[in-house]
Design a protein around this nucleic acid. Structure first.
Length: 340
DNA sequence: TTTATTTGACCAGT
DNA sequence: ACTGGTCAAATAAA
């Protein structure tokens, strides 16, 4: 765990330090609001910096992921007999293929080996089906009443499951206590082209699909609140998500060792996609749960995510302040992150 | 005709 | 035996 992962830590430290430097530069550019021409030039610099930062962050994520893979077991839920290539392959098909009664060794496969994330999305009326629209195309394949639950649970999988072997799926269910609140549980991540369009050059970007392309166009009034739930299946996935609570950019980090369509990134994208529609960020609310740890059953406000959603939503302007908040919130975040 | 949804039945895990 | 998840035929919609 020490050897190769320590190299990764160095690389990760370098990347993060680079990001920090860029954030500082960005702050400097933003600080001087002067003549229009100068302001335009500064804005151009800001854009370039943001682009670089996103690249750097993405590389950091990759490094972190590789460190985790090398250094420690990733997802305990992954069956030892499952080859690494299982994700995204036919063997990872936990739907129809989960019905393979046994593998070659005669051992039964566990049904759930994909990472899970949950979001909660509030709508403004019972007629709204907003939570179903997270920018991806989903195909409903089932609905079932759940014991003790007031509302049935709907099961969706990626429309491109067959054509592109994309195994992302999700479950949507109205909350018992609050019919306007939808619990959306994501299983696995998108490996389809649709996911690729949401990650240009490997960079996570907010999704802003034309309304016509969305399978469930949303009235603007729907997006009053979004709650993001990070639910790891233990191991580093959970760990990364816990770090995500501390550092907003970590939120784009998919759990390492999974089929890398960028599930966590997709989740954030979904969050941001929805959050980015918020007309009034002041009323939007992003909270993080960790359902994987009962000791953390409470809700934590994570203003960072709101910063992120605001920043992604707005043009590169004053909202980029959130980047600087990183350092304000935790000036030593590079040091005590546990990686260095 | 193609694609998506509904829904009862089946299956795996507990 | 019970429950949640998925399949697949029937049906609806585009």
């Amino acid at each position: 765990m020490e050897g190769s992962s320590s190299d990764g830590r160095c690389a990760l430290a370098a990347e993060l330090a680079q990001v920090l430097g860029m954030v500082r530069q960005l702050g400097a550019h933003m600080g001087g609001g002067g003549v229009a021409a100068v302001a335009a030039e500064a804005e151009e610099r800001c854009r370039a910096l943001v682009s670089s930062m996103l690249s750097s962050i993405d590389r950091s994520i990759i490094i972190a992921r590789s460190c985790c893979v090398e250094g420690r077991p990733m997802l305990p839920a992954v069956m030892p007999e499952s080859p690494p290539s299982a994700y995204g392959s036919a063997g990872s098909d936990l739907g129809a293929d989960s019905r393979c009664r046994a593998n070659v060794t005669g051992q039964r496969k566990k049904r759930k080996t994909l990472p899970i994330w949950s979001t909660q999305v509030r709508v403004s009326s019972m007629q709204d089906v907003g939570p179903l629209d997270d920018g991806f195309s989903w195909r409903k394949y089932g609905q079932k009443g759940i014991l003790g639950a007031k509302y049935p649970r709907a099961y969706f999988r990626c429309t491109h499951r067959r054509t592109q072997n994309c195994h992302a799926s999700k479950q949507v269910q109205r909350a018992d206590g609050d019919p306007l609140l939808f619990d959306v549980v994501y299983h696995g991540s998108h490996t389809c082209a649709q996911a690729a369009t949401r990650s240009v050059d490997g960079q996570v970007r907010p999704l802003l699909l034309p309304a016509a392309k969305q399978s469930h166009p949303q009235p603007a009034a729907q997006q009053e609140q979004i709650t993001v739930v990070a639910e790891g299946e233990g191991g580093v996935a959970q760990e990364l998500e816990q770090q995500a609570m501390l550092r907003p950019f970590s939120f784009t980090t998919p759990p390492a060792g999974v089929d890398d369509g960028g599930a966590a990134g997709a989740l954030l994208q979904g969050c941001l996609a929805t959050a980015s529609h918020f007309v009034s960020p002041a009323t939007s609310e992003c909270q993080v749960y960790d359902l994987g740890d009962s000791s953390m059953a409470g809700v934590r406000n994570v203003p960072d995510i709101e910063f992120a959603s605001k920043a992604m939503n707005s043009s590169m302007g004053a909202d980029m302040e959130f980047l600087l908040q990183l350092e304000r919130l935790d000036p030593d975040f590079l040091d005590d992150s546990g990686y260095f």
